[in-house]
Design a protein around this nucleic acid. Structure first.
Length: 187
DNA sequence: CTTTCGATGATCT
DNA sequence: GATCATCGAAAGG
């Protein structure tokens, strides 16, 4: 599958299909093992109430980033999905670190590999993604998105850390991975 | 092991 | 003024 083919589908197609792809920023990163879909018409989505200054990039072209400040402290990154105007995206929640482990340890200030990219805020810190990357095109340097070499099995659960539409099983995790942000029962 | 809570600031009501 | 798509440290069992 190619980058263009990946982003042809719905936000759920992309969320499921992007699991196992390797995301690199300046050569640092790993395999995507956990994302959450935020769909058009989804009350939990930042895009639910329409375009604003913050969420503008969610309404832009697919395959670009939507980066926002979380709890005034952390950065969280979404991959924009579907056609411009729909406001759909997939929140990057965890990577299996594969490239540039030392660089990630420096940025994170932790030694434990398990804590490098397990969580949306940790992941962006490890990769050096900030608000200045909001709107950036993942198909261009310094970003790289490489497809998996073998088929990946994906399971769905409910999403984490939200208070609305909590019952929707729109969290996508690689089956059997030990690199997800949290363990949670399948939906 | 699990649960609670403070940090910290933009965004929205 | 309230609410956060979080994290990490502290407190409780």
């Amino acid at each position: 599958m190619t980058f263009a083919e990946l982003f042809r589908g719905t936000v759920h197609d992309v969320a499921a299909g992007i699991i196992g792809w390797t995301l690199l920023v300046d050569g640092v990163g790993g395999r995507i093992v956990e994302v959450e879909a935020y769909a058009e018409g989804d009350p939990a989505s930042h895009a639910f109430r329409g375009p604003t200054a913050r969420n503008a990039s969610m309404f832009g072209p697919p395959g670009h980033l939507y980066v926002y400040r979380s709890y005034g402290i952390h950065w969280c990154a979404n991959v924009v999905c579907e056609q411009p105007g729909r406001g759909a995206g997939a929140l990057l929640r965890a990577l299996e670190p594969t490239h540039g482990l030392e660089r990630m340890r420096e940025r994170r200030g932790v030694v434990d590999e398990r804590l490098l990219c397990a969580g949306p805020g940790r992941l962006t810190q490890a990769l050096g993604v900030t608000g200045s990357d909001d709107g950036a095109d993942l198909s261009r340097s310094p970003f790289e998105l490489r497809p998996p070499l073998a088929p990946v099995k994906v399971v769905r659960t409910t999403r984490i850390g939200i208070s609305r539409a909590v019952e929707q099983p729109w969290r996508y995790v690689e089956a059997g991975t030990s690199w997800s942000s949290r363990r949670r029962r399948a939906a």
